[in-house]
Design a protein around this nucleic acid. Structure first.
Lengths: 277, 277
DNA sequence: TCGTCCGTTCCGGGAGCCGGAACGATGATG
DNA sequence: CATCATCGTTCCGGCTCCCGGAACGGACGA
């Protein structure tokens, strides 16, 4: 037990917007339950969600009864079989994911870098699936993780595929928090960089979000040019170095193009997915 | 547990276990929402869950507002970014899954068959993750899918790792429905077959659940010999033929053993997971 | 032994869930 | 073109049952 932090902070602000209905509360607890960082005891979940203890207790009971949560040793709850089944089903049923998977594997094999597919959730990008090299010393990206749009390759890729006003609205007017010394903090500057991304067909994150991490991404478009997500690769700067960007960029763009085409092409396109241009 | 008896029983039995509270209903709708078979319009979801239309409508609205569902064309709802993120997180955070993944890949490569990991949910096994060969003509197994314990290799594997009384209780006393001509329908017969499975270390499903499909599986044990799930391979009978079982069986058993050892060995074991015996 | 923290239970009040019924839009049908 | 079936949506009164502060007992740790 690292640190029983003193609860002397009455000025604790709720992380998410207040969960009003019982359903929102349930979702909040479920969300907290699957977070990878340790323990999920009743008190922890209550603290993380900002909900009163009895409420979380009742919800956990409901979940446990339905098989969505399972009480472990030491009062530690974890995801139950139903939740895992639900998760597996959700990921398997998503059309974009089914189509993206083989392309990601191919992209990873040819570039040697971790390849991933992300979708937009508000002003953030969530990494929904990935194909990782056999030996990743330090994982610069975790499945289910989030990154703000303004400082990530996948974010820029998706923004570039949106109409300018929509992108501007997502970026907002305020200066953005710096994540590294290289982060671009001015929404206007990001917006101004998008046309170049649009032209090139891929975006590059040059340590904008995290030190020593470089990324390349390209948008995936569904029917009607709807932005379905983005395909990208991530690596440490000394592996994914500056000059390889010129050769890897088009590969990422091609991969995203393949997924887009398959997405538009209807179900029959599954068999003819190929890696080359 | 003194169960408070319903004061006025309205003599009403729903096909699925009655969803009483708002949370159960929400879970039911979420579950219906991720089912792969098409369309997820309001009326479809209402029919599948057995809930009244306005209720489903309200829930979908709540989900949509929170990003867990997204209204598509033609009133078709699908999983939203939050739900996909939750799913990805849940699968990535599960310790057994993280450990099983590389072992499954290795097992698939060495056997050439679809390898999967399943956990128990009541009297069924749900397939939580899998590693599939590049070309599977017809997928005999889908992620998130379920199979009864009594007629599947993973089911037998998990049953064999349970104390006999527990296994007997899960099998029940009634004759079981036949899925193929070869299905073993007698709970007693299944129970009697378990010691042999225990001895061999792996179970074989010889077209018990589906025609032309054979499967091999072995149990995965966590700390304290708790049954964490099962590792298995599946294939069509003419590919996964009878004589190869003798050589593939031990491979499956070894793979399950590797996962079990890693599961027990603590977090540090991640780096030394190996495929060979 | 005492103090602390956690999980659990209780219970009265009232917020807000519930779902039958009705309405307008849409597309199929003759 | 007229008709009907079906679907999504809205409304609203009733009353379920959700809510969470408070209290209790047990498990550690000091």
């Amino acid at each position: 037990m690292p640190k029983p932090v003193n609860t002397s902070a009455p000025r604790r602000e709720e992380p998410p917007a207040a969960a009003t209905g019982p359903v929102d509360k349930a979702l909040a607890v479920l969300d907290a339950l699957v977070q990878p960082d340790a323990p999920h005891r009743l008190a922890d979940l209550a603290a993380r969600t900002g909900l009163p203890k009895p409420t979380v207790h009742r919800l956990l009971h409901t979940f446990a009864e339905a098989g969505y949560a399972v009480p472990g040793p030491g009062g530690n709850y974890q995801a139950g079989p139903r939740l895992l089944g639900l998760a597996a089903t959700a990921l398997a049923a998503s059309r974009e994911l089914r189509l993206a998977r083989p392309v990601l594997d191919d992209l990873r094999l040819r570039t040697g870098h971790l390849a991933h597919f992300s979708v937009r959730d508000g002003t953030a990008a969530v990494h929904v699936t990935q194909s990782e090299p056999s030996s990743t010393y330090r994982m610069p990206l975790t499945a289910g993780g989030e990154v703000p749009l303004y400082c990530s390759a996948v974010g820029w890729a998706m923004l570039s595929a949106l109409p300018s006003p929509a992108a501007a609205e997502l970026l907002g007017g305020e200066p953005l928090p710096a994540r590294t010394p290289r982060t671009m903090r001015d929404p206007g500057a990001v917006l101004a960089a998008l046309p170049a991304v649009r032209e090139r067909g891929y975006a590059v994150d040059d340590e904008y979000a995290e030190q020593d991490v470089r990324a390349i991404a390209a948008p995936v478009l569904g029917p009607g040019d709807r932005v379905a997500g983005a395909v990208g690769i991530v690596g440490l700067t000394f592996t994914l170095d500056e000059e390889s960007v010129a050769v890897l960029g088009p590969m990422v763009r091609a991969a995203a193009g393949t997924v887009s085409a398959a997405l538009r092409g209807g179900a029959g396109a599954l068999g003819i997915v190929r890696g080359q241009e």
